[in-house]
Computed example of a mutant assay.
Amino acid sequence: MKIARGFLKPCFAVAAVVAVLAAVAGWITVGSAGAWAAPAGVALAALGFAGSVWAVASVEKIDLRLTLPMALITYAVKLMLVFAALWAVQSTVPDALPPFACGIIGGAVAWLTTQAVWAYKAKIPYIELSRDH
């Protein structure tokens, strides 16, 4: 799985660029609340995806059959955390909710697009090649 995690660096790099762009767009559209809320949403999405990768890769070391249950568990936990974060932002700074939500969406789209492009270009064998030969 180490080869298959090679997408993390490009995904974080793209997320950083998107966070900067989100901060500028948030500042222009909403003001100071948008300047921090939009990149915070991007960061939440990126950290959520990276957390899933870490959790699935960790459980894969124990038993490959545990990867699907762990992926489903992390998905459920991420949804709860995102809804809790949206509720917290809405409760404390209602003006920041739209840019925060847009940041989450933008971060998810950027991450998934980068990961898909990386996977398309990657040379990953679909079978385990033995080093004994």
Score class of each variant (00 low, 15 high):
Leu47Met: 13
Leu44Val: 15
Phe100Gly: 01
Leu72Cys: 12
Ile28Ala: 13
Gly51Thr: 11
Ala110Tyr: 01
Ile105Lys: 01
Ala43Asn: 05
Cys102Leu: 12
Arg65Asp: 15
Leu112Ser: 14
Gln90Asp: 14
Lys61His: 12
Ala15Leu: 01
Ser91Arg: 08
Pro125Arg: 00
Ala55Asn: 05
Lys2Asp: 09
Ala40Lys: 03
Ala38Ser: 11
Lys78Tyr: 14
Leu112His: 10
Gly6Arg: 08
Val56Gly: 05
Leu97Asn: 00
Lys78Val: 15
Ala71Gln: 08
Ile104Lys: 00
Pro99Val: 04
Pro94Ala: 04
Ala88Ile: 10
Trp36Val: 15
Ala4Gly: 02
Asp63Tyr: 04
Val82Leu: 12
Val82Trp: 07
Gln115Cys: 06
Ala43Met: 13
Trp27His: 15
Ala22Lys: 03
Ile3Gln: 08
Val56Ser: 08
Pro69Glu: 08
Val20Arg: 03
Glu128Leu: 04
Ala13Gln: 05
Lys121Tyr: 00
Leu129Glu: 15
Ala57Cys: 06
Gln115Leu: 06
Ser58Asn: 11
Cys102Thr: 14
Phe100Thr: 01
Pro94Asp: 05
Val17Gly: 11
Val30Pro: 04
Phe7Lys: 09
Leu79Phe: 12
Arg131His: 08
Lys121Arg: 12
Ile73Phe: 13
Gln115Tyr: 06
Ala15Cys: 05
Val17Cys: 10
Pro10Lys: 07
Arg65Glu: 15
Ala96Gln: 06
Ala71Phe: 12
His133Val: 10
Asp63Gly: 04
Met70Ser: 06
Ser91Lys: 01
Ala37Asn: 04
Arg131Met: 09
Val14Cys: 05
Ala119Gly: 07
Gln90Asn: 14
Lys2Tyr: 11
